[in-house]
Each structure stands twice: as C-alpha cells, then as structure tokens.
Design a protein around this nucleic acid. Structure first.
Lengths: 210, 210
DNA sequence: GAGGCTAATGACAGCCACTGACAATTGACA
DNA sequence: TGTCAATTGTCAGTGGCTGTCATTAGCCTC
C-alpha cells in the first residue's frame, strides 16, 4: 500500500470517527460538516470528497454489516427452508460483523450512533430505505435458492418483509436496552422469530406469549 | 367560513396542486420551492408558512389516506382476529379515501406523484418512515383490541409489520401497473394477503403459487 | 535527485432548502 | 371609519452540497 493510499485511508477513518463521535455526543442535526472537517483539520470540500454526504458517515458501519449478512445468506445450504436460511444467516454472521466493525470504530460508539439514528427523523428515514433495499436483495437470493421469479411469485418478498419487520423490532429493543453483547442480541432475535407462528395463528387469548 | 379563511385555504390548495403538478411532470429534485411559489405567485416565505417543507406537499394526500385507515381499524368489531381486522379496515376504507382525495386533487395526479415518491430516494425514505409511524399506531390499536401491552407482547407489532410489508409490496405493484381502479387494488391486496400463510409454510415446491 | 506527471487538497463562488426579524398590507370587527 | 390582528413580502443569514481552478504533495522516470 502506497504512502498516498495509507494517507487517504487515515484521513477517511479520522473523518468517520470524528463524525460518529460528534453525532453520539452532540447529536446529528447539531453537528455541521464544518465541525467534522475542522475536527480533522481538513477543508469542508475534502470531507465531501470522501463521503457523498453527512448521512453517509452515519451509515458506514451498518453498510458493512449488511454486506456480511448478504454474503452469509448466499452460502446457506439449499436444504434449508427460506425463513430458516434467513434466521441462520443473520445469527451466524454476527461474529464476523462484530470483528469487522471493531476494526473501524469501537462497538460501543456504534451503539451510541445507532441510538442517534433511531431518534433522528432524517436518519431513521434513511435507515428504513436502506433496509428496504437490503430486503430486496435478500428476496432475490431467496427466490434464486427456490428457483422462482421474484417478480412473478410474491412469496419471496413476503417472507423477507416479515423477517425484516421482526429484525427491525429487535434492533430497536437492542438499542433501547443496555445489553450490548452479541449473545443477548442473538437470544432476543430467536425469541422474536419464534413468535411469528403464534402471532399469525389468531386466537391470542388461548395461549398468551411467554 | 371567513373571507380570510377561504383565501388561506385557496392559497394552500393552489400551492399543493402546483407542487404536485410540478413534481409529476418535472420531477421532485428538479422543482425548487421558488418554482412552486412562483406558480402561485406568492413569496417563497409564504410557501413555508403553509408547509413545513417541500416534502410535506408530496405527502399531503397520503396523510389523508392514513388517517382514514386508522379510523377504520378503530371501528372494527372486536370479534375479528387481528390480521382480519387489518385487512378489512384497509379494504373497506378505500372508497372513503378515494372520495376525500378527489376533493383535493385528481386521483390520476396522485398516482403520478406516487410514482415519483417511489422513484425518488429522499421521498421513498420519508415514505417508509411515515409507514413505520403508521404501523406503530396500528400496533397500538391491535394491542388494545386484544387487551395486551404493546411493549410487553411482541405479537401486535409482528402482525402489523407483516401486514405492512404486504401492503407496501402491493402499493408498488399498483403504482407500477396501469390499473388505477379501486377494485383492481382491492383484488391485488386480497390476493397477496392470502399468500401469507403459504409463504410461511416452507415447502414452496410442493404447492406453487397460483 | 531534478523534473514532469497526476492525484489530493484548499479556496472561492454559487445553488437550494429553510429560518428569523421586521415592515407593509389586508381582512375583521367595533 | 378607524383600530387591531392576521397574513404576507423582503431581506439577511445558515447549512448541505457542487463546480471550478489554482496549489500542493506523492510518484515515477531519466
């Protein structure tokens, strides 16, 4: 790796960390791009040469995680039923995610930024759009696994929509609680996914949720 | 109603229609607030006194529709199972929606704007966030119907997430196709909702989708 | 290791969404 | 009709973001 390349990487990482730190402490709307650039001592123009917008810094880490989940689903054995493949892909990619993220920023900082994302309307909107795009990708992979046409058969998108909905609920609970651990997250997710069947059954009063 | 009030309403409606017309023809990003204000011959500042932002004009009609759906769900008989109540609330409020919208802008214009929403990243993001908020409301109503605590029992949010996912898929199909009719939309929705059970069953190869 | 090449940066000007402040106008009501 | 309050226009300013151009800094060759 060049001196030039190394320098670029260092600048990008510095900008990223400065941005996330500022978002987490001061809030997203309250930090200007000038603040971020000033914290790294580069011009505002340079910031925009590394990131397409202020938003992109906030979603740099989540993007990493998504990439890994998609990869995990791609390598799931074909024997698994769709919902099961999705569940395992997510549960089993968390270790890799944790590792990759920690190389960039402390997980704890990422948690704090995630809370900011959930509580900032503009960021929440962007987050949901990104999730929708991810779901589209997953639906395509599922369809391929089952030898179906995503646009002709509604079922791939439906399972993924359901799955995505459950994941989003657990993500929110994770960020709201104070258990950062992977195991805690894993447990939460399995619990919720196990509720899907009963939730659709209908007669909720007969068998109250545990 | 006052002369003053009538005048205000007229200005607001004019701004709304001008904005939607411009969005539909020229595109969202390509029309500036100045354009909209100029089309109605008021100052830019006045536009911002009627709408909190450019976005708000694009979602004025959808907001109307959401209000009616929430109301419809609230008045569903308690005997219905959650998913059924949701389905009927949506299907049976479309007539009211159609009527209310047409009083404001032509449905056909709304369709064109909806396509713009789906294809403009910033608007799509906002749309998804609004949908999430709506789902939260619906989950609360469902929980109340069933005498549950939304935060303690995951099932209300899960059914609503599933339902919302299906609705979003049908909305996209509706806007992509060329059948604007209510009946077409109704049929599409029922078809997709009927797929939910089979989609979760798992063995998709045994019983291919109709 | 001097010089040329190219990539990275900074400085500047400008667009657009949006806001605050103040003055001018216009409907309401006695 | 005159007074009061609501509505509007004007102006100035902030923040995100982009294009342009000159300057700097690493790279590569002779």
């Amino acid at each position: 790796m060049n001196l030039r390349e190394r320098k670029k990487r260092r600048t990008r990482d510095a900008l990223l960390r400065a941005a996330l730190e500022l978002f987490a402490t001061r809030g997203y709307e309250e930090t200007t791009v000038d603040d971020i650039a000033a914290a790294v001592d580069v011009s505002q123009r340079t910031f925009f040469r590394y990131f397409a917008g202020k938003e992109e810094t906030a979603f740099f880490v989540p993007r990493l995680a998504e990439t890994l989940v998609v990869e995990a689903l791609r390598t799931r054995p074909p024997g698994e039923v769709p919902l099961e493949a999705l569940r395992r892909a997510v549960l089993e990619s968390w270790d890799a995610i944790n590792e990759a993220v920690e190389e960039l920023v402390p997980i704890e900082l990422h948690l704090r930024v995630y809370r900011v994302i959930e509580s900032t309307p503009a960021l929440l909107a962007a987050h949901l759009r990104r999730s929708a795009e991810l779901e589209e990708q997953l639906a395509c992979i599922i369809a391929e696994r089952e030898g179906l046409d995503v646009n002709a058969d509604p079922r791939p998108r439906i399972v993924v929509a359901l799955f995505g909905g459950v994941i989003r609920v657990t993500e929110r609970l994770w960020s709201a609680g104070d258990d950062i651990s992977i195991d805690g997250m894993r447990e939460l997710t399995t619990t919720y996914l196990d509720q899907v069947g009963p939730a659709l059954a209908g007669n909720w009063h007969a068998e109250p949720s545990p």
